[in-house]
């Protein structure tokens, strides 16, 4: 159970990115955060794993306030939280396998890292992760030789290496085309359902939201403006979506528009 209470973030330049945001995510949930660019989604996700330090508020996860953690405690908490990025954030010149193995750094000693060593179990684990995501053949290629969809799968594999209980996905499909978007979302759904990982994912497309999420929160100018469960999302109309989103809301795949029942069958 993740409980965010009164989360506020004011940047050094005075920008207020988050204003008193509170919500909770039960374990095993697939929660989607929607909102315009600049509405505070990325800031909120980064506050949870403390890539950004919140100005005020509490982030209680399994009884521990993440906002108060420092040093080794913070790193130990971080390694249980995987993160997936819009631009994949792979080290482009390193091999795919090396990129995946970096997910294991939280469990590796500094000395071994200095020598560039990972245990053979870790290597095996990395290969298993790559196989699970269907890119085992790419293991020894440089990361920048892969296509966008493959790079994001490397990003997912890296998060998987951490044995996370929760995954934060910051617009994981915003850089991909609609078909790849679904494929990546299906991998996240698989991790959510099969491995029971809690998912917190920011998304832009209503049909992806309706198809994959079990709960939704909406942010606008750093404030929480919408909170809904599975039923609310399916009942959500384009107009409601646009209220949160402004006029720029879009759907992926016109054939799905308005046909919410078809979503249950999955999208090929």
């Amino acid at each position: 159970m993740l409980e965010v209470r009164h989360l506020t973030k004011i940047y050094d330049d005075g920008t207020q990115a988050l204003k008193d945001v509170s919500f909770s995510v039960p374990d095993g949930e697939f929660m989607v955060v929607i909102g315009l660019s600049g509405s505070g989604k990325s800031t909120m996700l980064r506050c949870i794993n403390r890539l950004i330090d919140p100005t005020e508020g509490e982030i209680i996860w399994d009884g521990v306030d993440l906002a108060q953690l420092k040093g080794d405690d913070l790193r130990n908490a971080r390694r249980k939280i995987g993160m997936i990025f819009q631009h994949f954030n792979l080290v482009k010149r390193s091999h795919v396998l090396t990129n995946v193995l970096t997910g294991r750094l939280g469990y590796t000693s500094s000395w071994n890292s200095l020598l560039g060593r990972f245990s053979s179990q870790d290597k095996e684990k990395a290969l298993v992760a790559l196989k699970r995501l269907g890119i085992l053949e790419q293991a020894y290629k440089r990361a920048d030789e892969l296509s966008g969809g493959q790079q994001q799968r490397v990003g997912v594999a890296r998060a998987l290496m951490q044995d996370p209980k929760m995954i934060l996905a910051d617009e994981p499909v915003a850089s991909l085309d609609p078909v790849l978007a679904h494929s990546i979302m299906q991998y996240l759904e698989m991790l959510n359902k099969e491995d029971g990982m809690t998912m917190i994912c920011s998304l832009h497309y209503l049909d992806l939201v309706q198809r994959y999420s079990t709960s939704v929160i909406g942010l606008k100018d750093g404030e929480l403006v919408y909170e809904g469960g599975k039923d609310d999302i399916l009942a959500m109309t384009d107009e409601q979506f646009k209220n949160i989103y402004g006029e720029e809301a879009e759907r992926v795949g016109s054939g799905l528009e308005g046909n919410l029942q078809a979503n249950a069958g999955g999208v090929a």
Binding site: L51, N76, A77, G82, F88, N89, T102, G155, L168
Partner: peptide, 13 residues
């Protein structure tokens, strides 16, 4: 800065 952020997020020191 992306990869730095990503590696930090894995719990690396």
């Amino acid at each position: 800065p992306g990869p730095i952020e990503a590696i930090q997020a894995t719990g690396a020191n």
